[in-house]
């Protein structure tokens, strides 16, 4: 029996491919800026925002999105204006935000909504409305990255010098924080807070191992993310394991494969140089 006969699986697969590709795209910039931990941190911050949105009866996407965006901006500003490093700033701001969520959950025990889905992901609970919202968010983030592609590359490579060459780096970083928050919000329901960091980082570092060309790294990372989203869903169906976990495990396997390819390539190059 084909899993695609089930609507929940079809919805889940579409979303897994979109989220995989989206995380692959954003992950390139996250990894190259040396902020791999931000995905892990911000997804926790957004969890706090999701609980606050629920308590205040705000729309989840808007409330949690704004919360995540502000947390990302706060991290950027803290790093730029104080002596605190990015890792410490992410640690303080996002954990405090996560703690707000936990505090609210423990205070209002009458919650009927199960936040397990936000923590561990529930791809099978994706509704057709969710598919439309996530597809729209993916499209907007892709377009945003495309229109600031050159500026974002320069800012990521060397922020200070980019400013001299006329790049408005403050704007670029703010827009990127928005794109990052949107990506995490879209991914939260599918992958859960605990697995987002891997989906954001692993395709990008896998692609980095395979190429030294920025454009190719972006294309590879998006491809690896989308492919592992689709294949991970199939594995989850046939092996009967949680979909988020199977996607991330598949990505980790691809990363291991890429490490081996990179090692073989290096060895071959060394041998060729020795013979010459």
């Amino acid at each position: 029996m084909s899993p695609f006969e089930f609507e929940f699986f079809r919805n889940g697969s579409i979303v897994a491919v979109l989220i995989g590709g989206l995380c692959g795209l954003i992950g390139v910039y996250v990894v190259l800026r040396g902020m791999s931990y931000i995905g892990h941190g911000l997804s926790h911050a957004i969890f706090g925002g999701a609980v606050v949105s629920y308590v205040m009866q705000w729309n989840f996407y808007i409330g949690a999105g704004a919360w995540g965006f502000l947390a990302a901006l706060l991290i950027n500003q803290t790093v730029r204006r104080t002596k605190i490093g990015a890792d410490a700033a992410i640690g303080v701001i996002t954990t405090a935000s996560f703690a707000i969520g936990i505090a609210l959950i423990s205070r209002y025990r009458k919650f009927t909504r199960n936040f397990d889905a936000a923590l561990f992901g529930n791809i099978l609970g994706v509704t057709p409305d969710d598919v439309i919202v996530i597809a729209a968010m993916t499209l907007v983030v892709f377009l945003l990255i495309l229109v600031m592609y050159k500026q974002l590359l320069f800012t990521t490579f060397d922020r200070e010098v980019a400013q001299v060459y006329g790049v408005r780096t403050e704007w670029i970083e703010t827009l990127f924080a928005l794109a990052l928050a949107a990506t995490l919000i879209a991914s939260m329901q599918v992958l859960g807070v605990t697995l987002i960091a891997a989906a954001l980082v692993v395709p990008a570092i896998t692609a980095r191992l395979l190429t030294d060309n920025f454009n190719r790294m972006v294309a590879l990372s998006v491809g690896i993310g989308a492919f592992s989203g689709f294949a991970g869903m199939l594995i989850s169906f046939y092996a009967d394991v949680a979909s988020g976990a199977s996607i991330v495990l598949l990505q980790a396997s691809l990363f291991t494969l890429a490490i081996s390819i990179a090692a073989i390539r290096k060895r071959t190059e060394r041998l060729m140089h020795t013979h010459i």
Binding site: K150, L153, F154, F157, A162, Y165, D212
Partner: peptide, 13 residues
Amino acid sequence: PVTVEQVVLMGRT
């Protein structure tokens, strides 16, 4: 991960 031409083209941003 940038090639020579990608770095030089940054000057046209």
